[in-house]
Structures are given as C-alpha cells and as structure tokens.
C-alpha cells in the first residue's frame, strides 16, 4: 500500500460511494471496501491491472479519463479519488473540474516536482530528474504534466476549488515536520481534499 493511500483513507466516510480514477490493480479500493465498507467503482485502462482488480472482486470499468468522464452523472459519488494520476492526464484542469462535478468531494495526490531533490538534480546536473519515485526518462514518461504544491494551489484558487484539507508526505515515515512547514520544498507527495 502506497503511503499516500493510507493518508487519504480517513477522509472517506464508511459506507460511502467512491470512484477511483486510475485505480490500478484495485489495492486501495479493496482496502476501502474491507475497512470502510464503501461501494467502489474503479476506472483503469491497463488490461492486466483490470484483470487483477476484478479478481479482487471489485467493479472496474475500462475507460480512458483523457477521453472524458461525461458518462458519469453530476454528484453521483460521495468521493472521487485520483491518486498519482493528475500528472499523467492530458488535461489535469478538466479532470479536476470533472471530479468535482461527479463527486461531492475529491481527493488528489501527486508527486511534488518542486521537492528539494528534484531542484538539486535539475539545478546541479541540468537534466530531468530520475528517481525511485519517478523512474522514467523525459521521453518515455507517462507523467506529462508535472506540477508543484504551489502550482496546484494556484490552479485551485483560479478555478474556485476549495481546499478542505491537505497532507504532505516527506522523505521519511516519521512525523513530516519539514514537509508540513515548507511543503513546496520538502513534500515528496502532496495530498489534497478538495470540493466546490
């Protein structure tokens, strides 16, 4: 279980309805079903991950977020989750708007590109950062829209999206003091609870 997923679980009400955009192999939805008794639906495009998620007993729909989400009615889910996919979609701003049209609240997690290691890597080597968390080269990465904590909050401000809560995950599992105090510099992963 990725660290950011354990963080966001507490924002999801027991028995609620959850849409997971880019649900992968369904690990998170399964956990929500077991521990929070949620009614979940996952969207995924990777064939093997879909089979894996279906084998966990989950409801999965093969659908590409980049082709739109207009088939989901307004306010038809309690929570729409998008974990580590914001940076991989073609139009992150449109997906955010859609999340809040479909769900009463949204939960977004993304890697913070302004983390000091990224800055150091880019600043000293002059090359796009490659790390354990972002193991791709610039030409083959699925992550086509990297952003920073500041970028994301600026977009929310511009679009009238309310940030209800945020959580910053630093380098270590210990209490993330640095990441909380200076998130744009020390957060590896940013986690937001948003609504209209």
């Amino acid at each position: 279980m990725r660290l950011d997923l354990t963080h966001i679980q507490r924002w999801i009400a027991p028995g609620s309805k959850v849409l997971d955009l880019g649900c992968g192999n369904g690990e998170f939805l399964q956990r929500l079903a077991l521990e929070r008794q949620v009614r979940g639906l996952g969207l995924e495009i990777d064939p093997d991950k879909i089979t894996n998620a279906v084998a966990r007993g989950l409801n999965i729909v093969e659908q590409d977020m980049d082709a739109g989400l207009s088939n989901f009615p307004d306010q038809s889910f309690d929570t729409v989750v998008m974990a580590h996919a914001l940076q991989a979609v073609h139009f992150p701003d449109r997906v955010l708007e859609e999340m809040l049209r479909i769900g009463r609240q949204g939960i977004v997690t993304f890697p913070n590109f302004a983390h000091w290691r990224c800055r150091l890597y880019l600043g000293s080597r002059g090359r796009m950062p490659v790390s354990r968390f972002m193991p791709y080269n610039w030409y083959d990465t699925p992550n086509i829209h990297f952003c920073t904590v500041k970028d994301f909050e600026a977009l929310c401000e511009e679009r009238g999206i309310r940030i209800l809560a945020r959580d910053m995950v630093g380098n270590t599992q210990r209490r993330p003091l640095l990441a909380s105090a200076w998130p744009n510099l020390f957060a590896v992963t940013a986690i937001y609870l948003i609504s209209r």
Partner: peptide, 16 residues
C-alpha cells in the same frame, strides 16, 4: 449498456 448501468447506480465491470 455500461453508461446506463453507471447512471442507474448498478454495480458494473466493463472491458473492451
């Protein structure tokens, strides 16, 4: 079919 099931709030799994 899938879109109608989603809108009707019925559990659905779909793959192409």
């Amino acid at each position: 079919i899938v879109d109608a099931l989603i809108a009707a709030d019925r559990p659905v799994t779909y793959a192409e």
